[in-house]
């Protein structure tokens, strides 16, 4: 009995260890950040999301699209510009103002010409480039990934994004960095081929085509928060987590109620079970 219990525990532990696949290049594991949305009772911090949006708008959106997010999402519950007064995000004045700043392609209904009109809250965030080829041409052949799901599409999620953004360091001597490439110890990759030093001391990480995008005071925060590199990176990573999972707040809140209910229900069922089986041996 004991043996069986132990082997099953070992089995479960083994399966849990089967999680992350080791990359041959072994980038550094992401730094651990305490996010407001972590844990079973986590929630997005609206002020942080607003700052993060500003970083996205002023820095990242020059090259990165976010095409699965609509302007109205900014006004949804849990989002950066949600206001309880405007339950319908289409009426939210901040959302409308933000949308108007963007232009979307459309057809003139009278002449049929291709035109650009100011976006409405129903539109999606536009891409800085008309297509992939243009995006690559504008970035030395590399395609800046769409940011809608970036926080879920990378192992480590927002921790990884934060580490990458703050992790740029000068390449160690002996590392040959190609043109248009930058060394980042958190970037996935295998640097053995570019390393001329001792074989057991290959630096961790890889090359990324994006130069360090953030620096101190690059974006001014309207709430007075000091605009350090660290703060910008944290805020934009939190914003990207929201963009990837806007329903996170609702998910965790619902989860609490559901699990509480299930615990109580299990208790009731267990009590019923004991009552039903009271006088029966088994």
């Amino acid at each position: 009995m004991m043996l069986r219990k132990l082997s099953i525990l070992a089995a479960v532990a083994g399966l849990m260890a089967a999680g992350p696949v080791l990359a041959a290049g072994h980038p550094l594991p992401p730094k651990n950040v305490e996010w407001s949305f972590e844990g079973p009772f986590g929630k997005f911090d609206q002020a942080q999301l607003q700052r993060g949006y500003k970083v996205y708008r002023e820095v990242c959106s020059a090259c990165h699209s976010m095409s699965l997010v609509s302007f109205r999402n900014l006004g949804d519950k849990g989002g950066p510009f949600y206001n309880a007064k405007y339950k319908n995000p289409n009426d939210n004045p901040w959302v409308k103002a933000i949308a108007k700043d963007y232009e979307v392609a459309d057809i003139d209904s009278e002449t049929g010409d291709a035109i650009k009109r100011p976006a409405t809250s129903a539109d999606r965030f536009t891409s800085p480039y008309p297509n992939e080829a243009a995006a690559r041409a504008g970035n030395g052949g590399a395609l800046p990934p769409d940011m809608s799901l970036l926080a879920k599409a990378r192992t480590g999620g927002p921790d990884y994004l934060y580490s990458l953004l703050t992790g740029y360091v000068a390449p160690p001597t002996g590392l040959k960095v190609g043109a248009g490439q930058h060394y980042n110890p958190y970037m996935a990759g295998d640097l053995t081929a570019s390393w001329s030093g001792p074989h057991d001391k290959v630096p961790p990480g890889g090359f990324i085509a994006m130069a360090a995008p953030l620096k101190k005071d690059l974006v001014s925060f309207d709430d007075g928060t000091p605009s350090t590199l660290d703060q910008q990176a944290k805020d934009v990573s939190a914003f990207l987590m929201w963009a990837a999972e806007p329903k996170l707040d609702e998910r965790k809140e619902t989860g609490f109620v559901v699990i509480l209910y299930l615990l109580l229900f299990s208790g009731l069922l267990y009590a019923s079970y004991r009552k039903v089986w009271k006088n029966e041996s088994h």
Binding site: Y261, L264, F265, L268, L269, A271, S272, K275
Partner: peptide
């Protein structure tokens, strides 16, 4: 207990 359980099941 049975009534409570069935009621909880129905509510859930």
């Amino acid at each position: 207990i049975y009534i409570a359980t069935i009621a909880a099941a129905a509510g859930g």
